[in-house]
Amino acid sequence: MCARLVTAGLPEMADGGVLLTACVPSSNLAPLEAIKAKFGAQELSLVTLFVSPNADFDGLVAEAELSFPDTDVVACTTAGEISDIGYDEGQIIAVGFPASGFAASAMLIEAIDNLDAQPLIDQIALERVRLQERYQEMKEGFAFLIVDGLSLSEDTLTATISPALRDMPVFGGSAGDGTDFSETRVALNGKVAQTAAVLTLVRTKFRTRVFSLDHLVPTDEQMVVTEAVPEQRIVKQINAEPAAREYARIVGKDPEQLDRFTFASHPVVVRIGGSHHVRAIQQVNEKGELVFFSAIDEGMVLTVAKPQNMASHLRRKMAELSREATPVNILSCDCILRRIEAEQSQMGHELSSILSEHNVTGFSTYGEQIGPLHVNHTMSGVAIYRGNE
C-alpha cells in the first residue's frame, strides 16, 4: 500500500498549477486532517476522492464537505486504487485542483436509469458555456464523468450527454466495490447517491490530452448473441447454445471453471464505427447465462480478442503521451479487468512501476467512459502538461 502521503507533479512551480494528490490508508481515523495537511493552504477549485470500499464512505464525504466548504468535492467507491506506488488497495486517494490553474463545475445526475434527456442536455450545455465565458484565459478543457458502476445505465448516459459537451472531451470511470459487485456509490458535496453520476466540467490554462488505451487485438473467432435481456446486460444464448457453455467451448475452457480470470484473459469485443470495443463479461449467473459490464443485444457479433503484453503496451502508450512533452500529472480510470489480468499474468509489479514512473493517479473501475461510449478493459484518462503551448 502507499507508504506515505505524496504531492504529485512539481510542487516548486510558482503558479501552483499542478494537481495535488494524497494517499491515506482507509484505516486512518482522521483521513481529512491528513489530506488537508498535505494539500496546505492553496485555494482549490475541485477535490476528487477515490475511496476504497473498506472505508466509511458516507462519513468521509460528509467530513470532506465540512473540510472543503467552498470547493466541489466529488467522490466514488473503487475496485482498487492507483497511488504513488501504482496499483494499490485499501486507500483513499485525494486529488486537488488548484484554483490558480483550474476552474471546475460539478453536477450530480440522479435517476440515470430514467433520464429526462433534454433538460439535462440543456443544463450541461449552459454550464459548459458559462464556465468557458467566465474563464476565458483558460483555453483548455475536459469533462470527468463518474457513474454508479452497478446502475446498468452508463451506455445511455454517455450517449445522452456527449452532444452537450461539444468539443470538450469527456472521460471517466464507473464506481466499483472491489470484486464484490454488491454496492457502489458516488457523491457530490456531501450528498451520497446510487443509480447516479457526477459530471465535472474543467477548464485549465494547462495543455491537456484525454486518451483511452487497450492492449487487445481481435482474432478470427466470432460468436453471435442469439438470446439476451439487454436491460439487464444478460446473454442467455450464443450461437443458439447456452451462453456460458458456448463461450467456454470457443475459448477452450471448462464451462464449470469460468471465473473472472477467464473473462480477463479471454475478452470479447464488438465493432463500432470502424473500431473494436470490449464488451467485458462480469460473471456467470446461476442459470449459466453471461452477465456483461456494458450494453449487449441480440444479433450482436462478438469477437474473441487476444491480449498483447500489458506492460510493453502500457510503456509504449505512456511514451506516446510524452512524445512532445512530459505530462506533469495523469489522472486515470483503469478497468478492474486489467488489474485482474495483470495479477494473473504476474505483471502487476511491472505495471505498477510504469504507472508510478509516469505519475498516474486514479482508481480501478467497473467500466470506463470515453466520448459517447461506455467501454471495458481499457484505461481512460487525461494527461496534464506543465506548459500551455
Rank of each mutant, 00 (worst) to 15 (best):
M1G: 13
C2I: 10
P11L: 07
L19Y: 09
S26I: 03
P31F: 08
L32G: 04
I35S: 05
K38F: 00
A41E: 14
A41G: 10
Q42M: 02
L44A: 11
V51S: 06
S52A: 10
D70W: 02
V73R: 08
V73Q: 06
T78G: 01
G80V: 00
Y87R: 02
Y87M: 08
Y87K: 07
E89L: 11
V95I: 15
V95P: 06
F97K: 09
P98Q: 09
P98C: 05
F102S: 07
F102G: 08
A104H: 10
A106R: 11
I112R: 12
I112C: 12
A117S: 13
P119M: 11
Q123S: 15
I124Y: 09
R128E: 10
V129L: 13
E137I: 01
M138E: 04
F144Q: 12
L150F: 11
E154P: 09
E154F: 04
A159H: 13
A159P: 02
T160H: 08
T160W: 05
S162L: 01
S162R: 14
P169R: 03
V170E: 03
G173R: 01
G178E: 03
S182I: 02
E183M: 04
V186S: 09
A187S: 15
A187C: 08
K191Q: 13
Q194M: 07
A197E: 06
T200I: 09
T200W: 12
R203P: 06
R209C: 06
H215M: 04
L216V: 08
P218Y: 03
P218V: 06
Q222T: 15
V224R: 14
E227T: 10
P230Q: 01
E231P: 02
I234E: 13
N239H: 06
E241H: 14
A244Q: 10
P255C: 10
D259L: 02
D259A: 07
T262H: 07
H276A: 13
V278M: 01
K287P: 00
K287R: 15
G288T: 11
D297V: 00
D297P: 01
V301I: 14
T303M: 03
H313P: 00
R316D: 00
K317R: 15
K317I: 05
L321I: 03
A325I: 06
L331W: 09
C333A: 15
C333Q: 02
L337A: 03
L337F: 14
I340A: 13
S345Q: 10
S352C: 09
L355Y: 15
E368L: 04
E368Q: 09
Q369F: 01
I370A: 12
V375Q: 07
M379V: 12
V382H: 10
V382I: 15
A383W: 01
